[in-house]
Simulated assay, not measured.
Amino acid sequence: MRQFVIRWVKRLAIAGLILVMVLVGAGAIYEQTARSQAAKDYPPPGKLVDIGGRKIHLNCEGSGTPIVILEAGADTSGSALWEPVQKQIARFTRVCSYDRAGIMWSDPAKGQRDSLAVTEDLHKVLRAANERPPYVLVGASMGGPYVMTFTKNYREEVAGMVLADASHPEQTKRLAEATGVPESNPIPFVFRALAAVVWTGLPRLVLPDAEVPELPAETAKAITAYQPTSLKGAFAEAAAFEDSLREAGTLLTLGNLPLAVISRGKPWSAFTEAEQKASGFTQEQFNRAEAAWASMQAEEVALSSNSTQRILKDSSHVVQLERPDAIIDAIKEVVNKVVHAEAAR
């Protein structure tokens, strides 16, 4: 009897293993089919530029100088979130958005993806595409430290800067001190696990569709279609988050470089009850965090002797979607300063 039970247990184990292999194989086929379909349904709006064995998606529109360069925050959406801003900027000067390595249409890259690697890629792709300086750099959220690092390394090419609720080099420590909430892992285990098994098709099945009502429906669908393959690239940047902030912090001054800072200012009362709960903060913690954030934003304004700041009482962090008009106005302001300075020479 004991031998009979053992034989059946072995058979069930083998059958279970075979079933798992079949499901994984089917998932892998599903994932490859979905990727092919995404490439067919949602081709890149710009061009894929070779920077030495891999390609970066660069989307440029309009004409004129200086060229406005849009640097996105840290997520899987890449250049797509800039669409409401880019279309308007293209009416008065040339403007380029792009996807960092492994995000949306851009090929992945090996090695650490800190701000030095990110800005080196940006410099290479602009050169390869013959998009010549001077540049006005626009950084949203984590895009802020990236444009700061670019400016430090290629100062002679940068004519102006716009920071849209940009991250601050000391934000992790100072926000933790303000709220009493300890620093946490920027990449929860479940998301790291999903990124590791993206080839099985599982992330494509379980991740929710991108809900971005401020964007055209087709753009939101493209973000959803490329979201699983963008996970690894986004997480590679998140793993180097603190290194990138520290590097940006070594830029101590912009001199008299034209700078416009757009800062969030939406009060606790303006959020829905669901949004307040989702924040994980009490009202008191939120207010302390926002006070610390406002102080850090003021420090970014002080980077240049030729700066302005606008605080938006009706916007939270993703300003390019909630108040694209404010970013457009700030870009116009900086571009005009650059043009006038050039004319005066």
Rank of each mutant, 00 (worst) to 15 (best):
R113P: 04
M104P: 01
S106R: 03
V125D: 05
A129Y: 15
V136L: 09
S97W: 01
V68S: 12
G143K: 02
Q112P: 10
S115L: 00
L137I: 08
E71D: 14
G62I: 08
P43C: 12
P133Y: 06
V125E: 11
Y146D: 06
V138T: 09
D121Q: 11
T65Y: 05
P45F: 08
S77V: 01
V95R: 05
E131W: 06
S63Q: 15
G53Q: 03
T33N: 13
P66N: 13
G52D: 10
V85D: 04
T65S: 15
G139S: 05
T119A: 01
S79Y: 00
M142E: 10
A74D: 09
A117K: 09
Y42V: 08
Y98P: 01
V68L: 07
S115P: 06
K47P: 00
E131C: 10
G143E: 05
V136F: 11
D75G: 00
N130D: 15
D121M: 11
R127N: 10
A34P: 02
L58S: 03
M148F: 03
G46F: 07
V68I: 09
L48S: 12
A128H: 13
Y98D: 05
P84Q: 01
V138I: 09
R35D: 05
T76W: 00
P45S: 02
G62C: 07
R35W: 01
V95I: 12
E120P: 03
Q32E: 13
P84W: 02
G52S: 07
A109H: 06
R127M: 11
S77W: 00
A117W: 02
D121N: 10
S77Q: 04
G102D: 05
E131F: 07
G139Q: 08
A90K: 12
N130S: 14
D75K: 00
K110H: 10
V138C: 12
P145F: 02
K55C: 03
A38E: 02
V136C: 13
A101G: 07
D99N: 12
T76R: 00
C60N: 09
F92E: 12
I69N: 07
V49A: 15
E71T: 15
V68Q: 05
T93Y: 08
D99R: 02
K40H: 15
T33H: 11
A34T: 11
P84M: 01
P43K: 13
E71A: 02
R100P: 02
P66T: 15
G62S: 11
S36E: 14
C60T: 13
S106E: 05
M104S: 00
I69K: 05
V147M: 11
K124Q: 14
G73N: 11
A72K: 02
L81Y: 06
E61Q: 14
G64Q: 13
V118H: 00
L70D: 07
A117Y: 06
R54Y: 13
L58T: 04
A109E: 11
T119N: 11
E61N: 06
T93G: 09
R91P: 00
R54N: 04
Q112R: 12
N130K: 15
A34C: 08
V49I: 15
L58C: 02
S77R: 04
I89H: 08
Q86D: 04
V136A: 11
L48T: 04
A34K: 13
A140N: 10
L116V: 13
A74Y: 01
S79L: 02
C60P: 14
D41W: 03
A90N: 14
